[in-house]
Design a protein around this nucleic acid. Structure first.
Lengths: 235, 235
DNA sequence: CTCTGTGAAAACATTCACAGCG
DNA sequence: CGCTGTGAATGTTTTCACAGAG
């Protein structure tokens, strides 16, 4: 809609891939590797080398002709672009099966997304412990979000209350919502929203399988508007 | 790559949206509605009416000019296209936080994806009950998949063993895999693969939020090859 | 040589806009 | 009228292919 003044925008599909590059690169770095070529990276991720180079050009000119890319530089740049250099504090609303699994999902913490609170609409659950956190009643949402400086919320409640919970989260001050309820959530402009629907994911699989597909990778639902970025880089 | 004889291929992004139409339409049907216009549907899903009509044209000519679409016809057609008219039997490998949450996720059963078995590599867990199923040791994988006529597998194990588990599932006879491990899984041609990575989803949210986005909907990772209606393709 | 960065071309997907049906 | 179906136009993403750096 809006071209946005000086900003360079990052293509929507590319933004999705950047996460995969980061995941793969961080792993390689841990394993002691220090450089990769676009071809090697593409191989690991099921992409062509040209695609990889185009995507990584978003990070600036970090490649060394004849040598490849320095992984640590790429990781640093990707982290900045993806907003991973900031401090994200997350709360989970809904202490059902999914909510509890997410609270206990160690990888979030290790990746820098600290889960700082869990809420549930059922007052009877308040006080119960999940993954080291005490479940809090919904009435504490606004105060806890403020006190804990929480900026992202995860919606893990039934479809019926999802929109309402999302509204409460936004009102409490979160800047983005990760939605696990099987419905579309509307938020005002400026608030981020990403949804994951397990049934949709399984259905995509059924579709692939039923229609006789090929290989593939990586799936779930993602989508939204423009996806612009920062990157004074490139071009 | 190859146009494929008689079949029409479904654009990859459209396939993702078809799941959302089905989800929305099934809900409307339950609520007693019997027709929708492309405009109303688009409104609910954040799409333009033209987009909706183009997508629904995939189902054949089901719209009635001046009247809209008959929801029940659309649902029936979408179910067939998405492979939801078949009988899917699913097993979950990995009885950790995520695995257990998925086994207990009622929506799967209600939507026609019956979870028929749970496995875990830790023999100590064998016999323990989760969501009405007894956890089985990995050595029973092949026999149970065959006996229960399981055709889809969910991988909910740590990254390190994900590929290995996927290979075992394919060897056991499943036709598709839903992967929750944070890595790319390779499967031979003809086997479906869809991945969901919670950290990638949160990171997409961080990206949106950090870069100051707009509104959005629906997210996670999805991807794979062509996604055509048949595809004996190759590369 | 190997491997990047990038214009230019091709493929793909979305939006427009309108003819035509009920 | 209201609403579908669809070609044609527009916009976006991927692929190609090659110049140039180390």
């Amino acid at each position: 809609m809006r071209p946005v003044p000086g900003r360079k925008s990052i293509p929507r599909p590319a933004a999705r891939r950047l996460s995969l590059y980061l995941r793969e690169l961080a792993m390689r770095l841990e394993q002691g590797e220090s450089t990769v070529s676009s071809k090697a990276l593409g191989r690991s991720l099921g992409l062509t080398d040209a695609q990889v180079r185009k995507d990584l050009a978003i990070c600036g000119h970090l490649g060394h002709p004849g040598r490849g890319y320095t992984i640590s530089d790429l990781v640093a740049s990707l982290r900045t672009i993806m907003g991973r250099d900031r401090d994200w504090r997350v709360c989970v609303v809904g202490a059902g099966n999914i909510g509890r699994a997410l609270v206990s999902y160690d990888r979030f913490r290790r990746e820098g997304f600290a889960i700082a609170a869990v809420f549930d609409g059922n007052p009877a659950l308040a006080g119960q412990e999940v993954g080291g956190l005490r479940i809090r009643p919904m009435k504490d949402l606004a105060s806890v979000v403020a006190a804990e400086r929480i900026n992202l919320g995860i919606v893990a409640v039934p479809r019926e209350s999802a929109q309402q919970v999302a509204d409460a989260l936004v009102a409490a001050g979160v800047r983005g919502i990760l939605n696990f309820a099987p419905r579309r959530i509307e938020v005002r402009e400026g608030i981020g929203i990403v949804s994951v629907d397990f049934t949709v994911a399984l259905e995509q699989l059924a579709f692939q399988t039923a229609t006789g597909l090929e290989i593939g990778e990586d799936a779930a639902d993602d989508d939204h508007e423009p996806t612009d970025g920062e990157a004074p880089t490139s071009a």
